[in-house]
């Protein structure tokens, strides 16, 4: 970085430190958990106050689509985990293929989500639509939360997909390698979080009876 006379500290902040970058990622995941934690809190309180209405409203959702999406996300968590192992073993090509599969899964998740949301719009189930505004209070609260939480989750799916795409590019450029795989591992951690949040959203909105 500088001429040979310059003294450089051993504990420099510019050194590559895999542990530090992983720790940073975990801390960031804490903040994501708390972000959704606020929403889960609101969900718990409104569900407790409007149990019957929440149950009634949940029948509007298509459990099959939710199940398929759950399987899609769980599979994608597997492919990204395999991608990390592949890179650690030095098989960059396989890692790239597996990462692409993960992105493909992310896209299919979003497409299925799109069909789910648009069928809600067709039934007039969005704030401001006539049918929606006629619903009882508890059911409206259910759909407020449904749209807000799955919408925010979908945003995270997009961010996670873009993150993985960036890492794929860096693997191709050999910036992310067998020795320096932190970034791929971090994108994997982020992707598992996206998956994990869905694992909670799915039963909360589709399954609880």
């Amino acid at each position: 970085m500088a001429d040979s006379h310059t003294f450089v500290l051993p504990n420099s902040g510019h050194n590559f430190d895999a542990k530090a970058s992983k720790m940073g990622m975990w801390l960031f995941l804490f903040t994501e958990l708390l972000l959704f934690g606020g929403l889960f809190l609101v969900y718990i309180i409104y569900r407790y106050l409007n149990q019957d209405a929440f149950l009634l409203a949940s029948f509007e959702l298509n459990v099959w689509m939710g199940t398929i999406n759950t399987i899609v996300l769980l599979t994608s968590s597997m492919t990204i985990a395999m991608a990390i192992t592949a890179l650690q073993k030095g098989n960059a090509k396989l890692a790239i293929t597996l990462s692409w599969l993960t992105i493909l899964a992310a896209l299919s998740f979003l497409v299925i989500k799109y069909f789910e949301w648009s069928s809600k719009f067709e039934h007039g189930l969005f704030p401001g639509m006539d049918h929606f505004d006629g619903l009882p209070l508890g059911e409206r609260l259910y759909f407020y939360l449904y749209f807000f939480m799955t919408g925010l989750h979908a945003l995270h799916v997009i961010v996670g997909g873009v993150f993985i795409a960036v890492v794929i590019r860096l693997i191709k450029k050999e910036k992310v390698t067998k020795e320096r795989y932190s970034l791929l591992e971090n994108s994997g951690l982020y992707w598992h979080l996206v998956d994990l949040i869905w694992i909670y959203l799915f039963p909360l909105f589709y399954l609880i009876h």
Binding site: T31, L35, G37, L39, P127, L141
Partner: peptide, 29 residues
């Protein structure tokens, strides 16, 4: 550990103003 909670709360205010996601205003639920 505390800032994300206000983050999501403020986003709820925005959603309420922009999309009518009425989580806080008693007149819409």
């Amino acid at each position: 550990l505390a800032t994300p909670v206000i983050g999501i709360t403020l986003l709820m205010i925005v959603a309420e103003r922009v999309f009518g996601i009425g989580l806080f205003d008693p007149s819409i639920g």
